[in-house]
Write a protein that binds this DNA or RNA. Structure first.
Lengths: 257, 257
DNA sequence: CCAAAAGTGTTGATTGTACACCCATGC
DNA sequence: GCATGGGTGTACAATCAACACTTTTGG
């Protein structure tokens, strides 16, 4: 059960001998959502040579749990750590090979394991924007937050993967609480509402939203108000850790009695 | 785009040279639910030599869409055709190797591609019990419906996969209509109710159930009654194809206004 | 006629939705 | 003072859950 060798490969070794360490034909792509300035953001990497953008993904070591691989690859490519990743779909179209707009092996390597067809498993996560200090890895020119509305054309089918992640997130919003990882520890009701509005892409009634959220019984109102705003100071809330986790496990409601 | 060679391999070829035709390290497992005698059933295969039971699964040809592979493998292993399969999860624990309780290569083959670690993608489907004539393939002794409550210990982590499929099905029940593929074309309200009760594992109120289901506006009541029962003859219903498909696409309800 | 299953309707409680009113803050 | 955002409450509508009554059928 002990974790076997997880060697650090040079770029050349990675292309030429990666298949000796990683599972072939399977990759991981992470869709990392953040929230800032009333905008839903997604974290993207920029390739060094082509300057094309992509989702931060990676590969699975031969003895590694796929979820472990998702967490590890996210950390190594963006610096993000301690993040709960939610699997949402496995993409299995045969016409999404890496050669097209993806990684090209460096000169001197004719045929790499990376040129073959890959099935990719998608994970998404919600992270607190301000906590994140993205650090691009050696392959990447930069690692940046993009406005979800302004995402450029990505490599391969990454736009499609992003779309599907967003769809899964929206569906989940009705069954599971959201916000704990997207907002600072202390937040205001309007802030939480903006988050929901942004994810759902529609306006919600301020008063009804408050009632509904409080009825879920997962928030705790603090005896503090958020100062410094231009208007009346709103109360601060935080998630009740225990109740939040319970709701995460059991879901928020059950249909049919 | 044309479908490339999909050769028919002998058993020996399959173990020794399968990796030349199929993607390595990745498999598919199908969980086929049926409904009969007020019981939820699942379709299982029995291995010829070990007599152990498993889910009908398979592998992906190098140029094949994963969903296509799910459909093809289901057909070749059980005879079932024209079935909508729903992907629900990718299982990526490294400790689920085929050698343990799974396929063993025949004598004479030391190391097969099948002995290596596999990630499996799970699909489930709901089928009309009476329409199905399961036909086991060459590897299998038999192909049979099992009562969901009486499923034996399966190979590998197949019990876990089945559990997760059932969980996904239950969650889906609240967001999407179910029944079209589990019941005969014409069915009665009590029959539909038994189906829901069986999947959810709890009793529902007859009158409220009827109101709720009819409110979904996906059923059409026929001018016929089911004759032959011991008591008052219940009406027959059928699904409205167009409305059913619309509900399938859009979901049945949307939270938060 | 009786038991069991099925069709239909009623009621009170809960929840959802659309509002109105008042309070605090900066300009 | 006033525009803007925030806290709280109310009224009506829609939905849900519990239950009663009637009809049909085989024995």
């Amino acid at each position: 059960m002990g974790k076997a060798k997880r060697p650090k490969l040079s770029t050349h070794e990675f292309f030429e001998k990666g298949h000796l360490h990683y599972l072939t034909h399977i990759s991981i792509d992470n869709v990392i959502f953040g929230f800032h300035d009333n905008q839903l953001k997604v974290l993207l990497l920029e390739w060094k040579e082509t300057h094309r953008w992509c989702l931060p993904g990676g590969f699975i070591f031969a003895d590694e749990h796929i979820e472990e691989a998702a967490i590890r690859s996210l950390k190594s490519r963006t610096g993000l750590d301690n993040i709960y990743l939610q699997q949402f779909y496995a993409f299995g179209d045969p016409n999404r090979e890496r050669t097209k707009h993806g990684i090209s092996p460096p000169a001197g390597i004719k045929k790499s394991w990376l040129s073959e067809r890959f099935i990719t498993v998608g994970y998404y996560a919600l992270v607190e924007f301000s906590k994140v200090v993205p650090k691009p890895d050696e392959f990447s020119e930069s690692c940046q937050w993009w406005d979800i509305e302004k995402v450029p054309t990505l490599i391969l089918d990454h736009n499609h993967i992003l779309e599907k992640a967003l769809q899964s997130l929206r569906l989940n919003l009705n069954d599971y609480p959201v916000g704990k990882d997207l907002l600072p520890q202390k937040f205001t009701m309007p802030e939480l509402q903006r988050l929901y509005e942004t994810i759902l892409g529609k306006q919600l009634d301020r008063r009804n939203f408050q009632k509904k959220i409080l009825a879920l019984d997962i928030l705790e109102r603090l005896n503090e108000r958020k100062q410094g705003g231009a208007h009346k100071a709103p109360f601060l809330y935080k998630f009740d850790q225990r109740k939040y986790e319970k709701a995460m496990k059991q879901g928020l409601k059950f249909g049919l009695q």
